[in-house]
Every structure is written in C-alpha cells, then in structure tokens.
Simulated scan of single mutants.
Amino acid sequence: MASGLLLSSLLVVLALISSSNAAPNGRIVGGVDADIGQFPHQVSLQREDGSHTCGASIISENYLLTAAHCVVVGNGIEPYPAKYFQVRVGSIQRTVGGQLLKLKRILVNKAYGNFLNDVALLELEKPLVFTANIQAIELAEEEVPTGEDVIISGWGRLYTNGPIPYRMQWNTLKALTVDECEEAIGMGDDSLICLAHQANNGACNGDSGGPATYKGKLVGVAGFVVGGCGSTYPDGYAKVAYHRAWIRENAGV
C-alpha cells in the first residue's frame, strides 16, 4: 500500500540525475503549526484504519487532487480500490476533528511514471458541504514566477525518519524555472515545478499529494524530495497549470 514515500523506479532516476549525486527518495521540515481555518482545502488521505498516508486538496464538492504514487499498486498506474481509503477534511489535526469521508472512485493519470505526471483524482462518495474550514481551492492557470514564495502544507515527517506531527505544518519555499530545476537536480520538465529551500526545510514523507499554493491558488502537488528530507536540493511537485486540462476533463473543474 502507498506510504507517502516515493521509491519506485529509483535506479532509473539515479541514472537520470547522476550528475547531481542525489536521487529522489521521498516526500514538512522546518515548518510551523497551522492555524484553524488557514488551509481549508487541505485534506489528510488515510488508510481505512485511520493511519495518515498522504495529503490531498479539495478542488470541488466532489473531487480531491492528490499524487498518483499515493494510491497506485506497486510501480504501475492501477489504483487500489477506493474502499481502502478515507479522508479527513476540515481539521488541522490528522486524528480528530472535521469529518471522515469515504471515496467512490480513484482516477490516476495514465501518463504517470518516472516521477512525472504524478497526479490522481479522488471522487468522494457524497458531495462536500462547504464551511469555514472546508473549502475548494482554485487551480492555477499560469506559471509561478521564479523566486516567488510558494506555501506548502501537510502532516509529513518533521525530518527524515522523524515523527509525524498531529497538527498540520506549513512552510514557505521558492519557485524555480524549468531550467533551474534541470540544473539543480537534472529533472527540468514542463510538468514539474521545483521548489527551493534552505537546508532543514521542505517536504517529507507524508506530505506527498499535498498542496503547494501561490497567491491563494493551487500550483503544485507534492511528489518527491532529493537527497533526503530537508536537503539543500529543491523538492519536486507536479505542476497544476500543466495538468489543468486533464483535471478539467476528468473532474469538470
């Protein structure tokens, strides 16, 4: 079952980015506690036993957006049955508060592979009722200018192999261009947005599938880290603007 740690195709990626001497090996480090209602779009994707595995974002009354690797079987593109998961919405605590909801269907981007196109849609069994703490987030349509602040949030580990927080964390990273991403980790691709940070900051295991936002819009879906959580390498996020057509086609938003 998916654990929020992206290890598939590791040898392939090692070859792709051998010049950087680092490889993607996972999914907030250096973050701070979120306030109630600060991230009403943020969702905890959980196994049916209630254990947190990934993040997700509310994009409509019926659909959530997450990472493909959070829900697929092995290294393929087929998802686990929707009944194996649940989501907690409307709470900054991953174990209490808000509502626990069941999924009706999981749809994975068929182009997912080698850390790219790492997006999936979660259709809810019943439509959400929006409140102050449960809101959809607008999808970005444009690139984030290089050097601009991007906000990430989630319940990922506080450091590599560290504890998972009960309260949602958030941090501020910096957007890079495709060329800058290529130079930094050898993975410059139009479907990716790389987010730079200082050491001991960034995403970690359990943040996968969670949101990256810019000016209140969803710009990225957490995918992988390079060289361990909180390294000096940028983190890789699926670029929402690039995947917007696929999202609109399949979720109607």
Rank of each mutant, 00 (worst) to 15 (best):
L64R: 01
Y84H: 06
S3K: 10
K217V: 14
S3E: 09
L173G: 09
N250R: 06
N62P: 01
F224L: 12
G4Q: 07
S231I: 00
L16F: 05
L6F: 09
D190P: 03
A22I: 13
A222Y: 00
A34V: 14
V108W: 00
R105Q: 14
A184W: 07
Y159T: 09
Q46S: 07
L139V: 10
N133L: 01
T232R: 13
N117E: 06
H52F: 05
C194W: 05
G90R: 02
T232M: 08
I152M: 06
V87N: 12
F85Q: 10
S9T: 01
G97A: 06
G186R: 03
I17H: 04
L101Q: 11
A111Q: 15
V12D: 14
L14D: 08
G209A: 09
P127T: 08
C204P: 04
V253G: 14
V96R: 13
Y242F: 15
A22R: 14
V240F: 13
V253L: 08
N161G: 10
H52G: 04
E78P: 00
V129F: 15
A68W: 06
L122A: 00
A175W: 15
S8K: 03
E125C: 02
Y237K: 02
E141T: 15
E48W: 15
A34K: 11
F85G: 10
R244I: 00
A245V: 08
P81E: 05
H52N: 12
G90P: 01
K110T: 10
S44A: 15
T232V: 12
I59K: 09
V225L: 06
D235N: 11
G113N: 04
A67I: 14
N200A: 12
V12F: 15
Q86K: 14
Y112M: 05
E142Y: 09
L158A: 10
P24G: 06
A132Y: 01
T146C: 06
G252H: 14
A222F: 00
A140E: 11
A222S: 13
V71S: 00
F224W: 14
I28Y: 03
K215L: 13
I28H: 04
M187L: 15
Q198I: 13
N201A: 13
A111M: 14
